[in-house]
């Protein structure tokens, strides 16, 4: 097993789901729940004759950052694209539910509990959503995750990390959007419809899925940061993601609510102002919106080193 200190400088993009999970929390604090030794392989994949994984492609567990209990969900994109089936879905749902129940237990048990001692949920996304091999069960599990996210509101903050190769798309694009805070690296991608499907719908002239720069401009970390869809943009290391989570641990639940993009009538009204802008602008490219946000040389932002990007970029205000 890789030593914890060696995990910290590692590329978040390249790391495995388990290394991300272990590296995000304090050294030696991670306990995996329903891990590979429990052999939770999918019988639905086996029925189709497809390879199985002992953890069904999702790492779930609990660790600590400082005094904060952190429930971690980490998806593994190398196993069937991080797709969510019956077991992986149940693992996600249960991790969030355990965090909520633990919160309630602690609040009942300690009358002097401070914010830092209350649990957090961190989800590292690497998925296109539903696993087609067991699609119905996967779909129903997505709805359960959303239900748990709403149940966590006002109690347990849920933080999304998106810095993986696959990104967060499909039904898990909804789930990521519904979390309290989104932390991305510039290599992370967030959306609903994958590039291939957009190309199929609109034609190659409108959207060329093989154009990687275009794909990143449309759904990548830099764009999502400018749009306000990502709250934080960090370097591509396990340590950078960990540091950002650590900086958030202990904030009040009200502070987390404020960071949400959606989840109330007022936030929906703000989003509708952005939608009105979309209708008015009909942007042909994401950089049109960057310009509108006040970035005079939008194209220069694409390749600017991250610290300079963060120092100079203007984010869209609507």
């Amino acid at each position: 097993m890789t030593h914890w200190t060696d995990l910290q400088p590692r590329s978040f993009l390249e790391a495995s789901a388990r290394d991300r999970a272990i590296g995000l929390v304090d050294e030696g604090s991670f306990t995996e729940l329903a891990g590979p030794f429990d052999r939770v392989t999918s019988p639905h994949l086996a029925l189709l004759g497809d390879a199985v994984a002992f953890d069904d492609g999702i790492v779930t567990g609990v660790g600590k950052i400082g005094r904060t209990p952190v429930f971690v969900i980490s998806q593994e994109g190398r196993f069937i694209g991080g797709s969510v089936g019956e077991i992986g879905g149940a693992k996600m749902v249960t991790a969030i539910k355990l965090a909520i129940d633990f919160h309630d237990d602690l609040v009942a048990q300690f009358d002097d509990l401070d914010e830092e001692e209350k649990p957090l949920v961190v989800i590292s996304f690497e998925t296109g959503g539903v696993r087609l091999h067991e699609a119905n069960a996967g779909l129903l599990a997505h709805a359960e995750v959303m239900d748990q996210l709403q149940k966590a509101r006002g109690k347990v903050p849920v933080i999304a990390l998106i810095g993986s190769k696959v990104g967060a798309f499909g039904g898990m694009g909804f789930v990521a959007a519904a979390t309290d805070v989104i932390i991305m690296s510039e290599f992370g991608r967030l959306g609903l419809t994958g590039p291939e499907v957009i190309e199929q719908e609109m034609g190659k002239e409108e959207f060329d899925a093989s154009d990687r720069a275009l794909v990143y401009r449309t759904t990548g970390g830099r764009h999502k940061f400018i749009m306000g869809d990502a709250n934080f943009l960090v370097e591509n290391t396990v340590a950078a993601f960990r540091d950002q989570v650590s900086a958030l641990a202990g904030l009040s639940i009200e502070a987390f609510e404020e960071m949400r993009r959606i989840g109330s009538s007022a936030k929906v009204k703000a989003q509708l102002r952005a939608v009105a802008l979309a209708a008015e602008m009909q942007p042909g490219d994401a950089t049109d919106v960057w310009t509108r946000a006040g970035n005079t040389d939008a194209h220069a932002l694409i390749d600017l080193p991250l610290p300079e990007f963060l120092a100079t970029v203007r984010r869209l205000a609507v």
Binding site: S16, A17, G35, P36, F37, A51, A53, F54, R78
Partner: peptide, 12 residues
């Protein structure tokens, strides 16, 4: 012990 990921052309 447990190592690896059942990725394409890979094993755990």
């Amino acid at each position: 012990l447990h190592v690896g990921v059942t990725g394409s052309s890979d094993l755990e």
